Amino acid sequence: MSRLCFDYGHGGEDSGACYNGRKESDDVLSIGRAVAEEVKRYGVTVDETRSSDATVSLNDRSNFENRNTYDYFISFHRNGFKPEVARGVETYTYLNARAKSKSLAGKIQTSLVALGFTDRGVKEANYHVLRETKAPAVLVEIGFIDNSGDNALFDSKRSEIIKGLAKAILAQVGVDYIEVSAPTQAESGQTLYRVMAGSYSVRENAEKQVKKLKSSGFDACIMIFN
């Protein structure tokens, strides 16, 4: 199974970008750890360069990653420029990055743009955590912390951001994300949660998906809808 290294930017004495009492270090720790919990549900191992509001140097971050072998290194950030001037998301790879880095960056960027963030594109940069890490690496800037519109999206669509990032990361490592539908009320009054893992016009394809889910330990069956 895949092993990932998650890096939550700044922390401790380094708050990162700040605006109206809001800290980048807090935002990325919160959202990043939630994404980690989501992907871990699928058996993916996630190690974190920090798990609290602690000061971690750039060297400590890259050294942490270099001590192990990871499939990907993902650094979470929020941008800053001038109050209410810039907005949007951008995802970075190192200069002349490997195909795997570019592929993951593209998936992450697409997932966030789909939620309403302005698309600032996939870019290259000579950042320490991209340059000094061994695994294919990306750094994502989840909107501008000094833009009220981006903050509104970050807060109101928190669950969608977590889900979108998790889906993008899982897709890159070859794991299918399983959608959980809204709860329905059973006749007995008990709330049930139905899990959807795809809809198929060909029964054979549906049967293959059920077999795949069962082999992964999920209880699955075919339900017919007209």
Rank of each mutant, 00 (worst) to 15 (best):
S201Y: 12
S199R: 08
T191L: 10
K212F: 15
V180W: 01
M196E: 12
Y193W: 08
M196P: 00
S188Y: 02
S181K: 11
K212N: 14
A197P: 00
A171M: 05
Q172C: 10
M196Q: 10
M196V: 09
R194S: 05
E204K: 14
N205H: 09
I178A: 06
G174R: 03
N205S: 08
V175W: 00
V202P: 01
Q172F: 03
V202W: 03
K212P: 04
I178G: 05
K167S: 11
E179P: 05
Q185G: 01
I169D: 09
Q185V: 08
K211Y: 07
V173Q: 02
K167R: 13
A171I: 00
Y193C: 02
S201L: 13
Q172Y: 05
Q185C: 04
V180I: 06
E207D: 15
S188R: 01
E179A: 13
I169M: 10
Y193K: 04
V175C: 00
A168T: 07
Y200Q: 02
I178Y: 12
K167V: 14
E179T: 15
Q172T: 05
N205T: 02
E207S: 14
T184I: 11
D176Y: 00
S181Y: 03
Q190C: 04
T191Q: 07
A182V: 10
A182I: 06
K214G: 07
Q190L: 08
K208D: 12
Q185H: 03
L192M: 04
I169H: 08
A168C: 06
S199M: 09
V175Q: 00
Q172A: 15
G189Y: 02
